[in-house]
Design a protein around this nucleic acid. Structure first.
Lengths: 165, 165, 165, 165
DNA sequence: TTTT
DNA sequence: TTTT
């Protein structure tokens, strides 16, 4: 049945590089840690305040997982559309806990890179991808966001593309 | 490229039965006329006011088009997710005009029936499914929303289903 | 700062009556338990499957809290727009836990009743407002959704209304 | 009545500088022309294709209009949330026409700047705000996006702020 | 842990 | 008319 809708829309920044696990089939499953920040002026004190919320995103959508793996880095700004899912698990002490995640299922969800050049990692020339960022030292790595990925959009219907752009 | 998002989310009622055209392939393309109504209290006069906006929806998504054809009727309440598209055309007098539509492309978009009993067609007892609307009398018709369709949800990933529920 | 977006859109049904707490000021804060259900056909077995996700919604928005208190009941279908927020707490055993909620802050968020007759409470004839749900028997209660509330929409800008319709 | 939702979410780039009209009260009303671009691979030919859609946005929300006036420029990337509205008008020849716009009403809608430094206009030092952009020569102007505006988010609840950040 |  |  259902007549129901379960949709999350986020625009935020990655707190760290994507974590990639791989299924037996070789398909990547990607976990992202995304920060959204709200700021407002306190009416009583007049101070500007700010609160950051952290979101766990899990990408099962194969095409989007590959793109996340290749083009997202710590600091990247991204648009994410998925659905809420809460799963129960037992921590190391065997205590029952719950984790709520934004999930992009197979063939579902959307993701769009919003950085000018597709990532927060330092550009080849050692420069900064976008001004004003202060995401610390992104460690050197081979898998670099390709300039061509800048601002590209991907959705679940790109599944059939070997290369998404 | 793009880094862009173009998304429309509507919850509204059909002003008339769906219009179904058929491609050479036999696939249905469905046009809906959807009303959304906003109401508010006028601060100056204290009166309650109300404004209805009409939206043209075009469903190319094959699975959703079939469902719209079968289960939506004048008065049906529906959740629609599509994208904005403006097309130019010439009217009967040859005057150039523009029409902006909410489009559900092939393999894209979402649609969910929100009626309690699966349709806006007159209930068995001849009543109305929802109050306050003024779409006129819903004419009798053979193709009735099946009770089983009530509150069902369909998305672009249901494409492979012969029957969606 | 921010350049960020944190938005959740739900259409679902209440698993129980709203829980109302009251601030010292007398303002209600309402907790909802909302179910969204997804169904799909298993490709391997051909079976129809279904999964229900439960969401915790907290309404600080005064106007919407009052409406939720008055017009929502177990079984009610509702459109909710809020933001994700995760809070840490210690359970009875003092174990640190996290809870992720959909929050409608003061002056923010949206809520729309989607029931035909304004609530999930048993209809006059003792029937159910929507099929396929399994929330158990809705207990009799005095505070009934008023018929006039059916399908009404409320947003954060209705704050100034003593009565929202 | 209603039970309806009318929501548009766009992420796109401004095709030209914002157009500002002023009400008798001095409040600005801002018109934006926003492009969203979709790209996909043609299955038959294997070619990459691209289609741009243009959207007319009208900002009546006073706070957001001021921000748009000050910080948006041709080329700016922006997140917009508003509602669809179609209005009838007569063109110069007296022909009746319709225009569909995304409207951010007073106290409603959202807008977030997504540029690294808050605009597509050339930076003070004559450089480019973000790589890969080709928005032509942005004419010199006094009203420059302040660096401080970069990636700032504003919503209808910032109304009470003299300065939004 | 991000971003401003 | 933007963006890649």
């Amino acid at each position: 049945m259902s007549g129901s809708v379960n949709k999350v829309i986020l625009i935020g920044n990655l707190g760290r590089d994507p974590e990639v696990r791989r299924l037996n089939s070789g398909e990547p499953v990607v976990n992202l840690r995304v920060a959204t920040t709200e700021s407002w002026r306190d009416k009583a004190t007049g101070e500007r305040k700010e609160k950051t919320e952290w979101h766990s995103v899990v990408i099962f959508n194969e095409g989007l997982a590959r793109i996340a793996e290749q083009y997202l880095r710590k600091g990247s700004k991204v648009y994410i559309e998925g659905q809420l899912q809460t799963r129960k698990y037992n921590d190391q002490q065997g205590v029952e806990k719950y984790s709520t995640e934004i999930v992009l299922q197979r063939y579902r969800g959307e993701m769009t890179l919003l950085d000018s050049r597709g990532g927060g990692a330092p550009a080849a020339e050692g420069g900064r991808d976008y001004a004003g960022a202060d995401f610390g030292a992104a460690s050197p790595m081979e898998r670099r966001p390709a300039p061509a990925a800048a601002g590209s959009k991907f959705s679940s219907s790109d599944m059939d593309d070997d290369i998404p752009f």
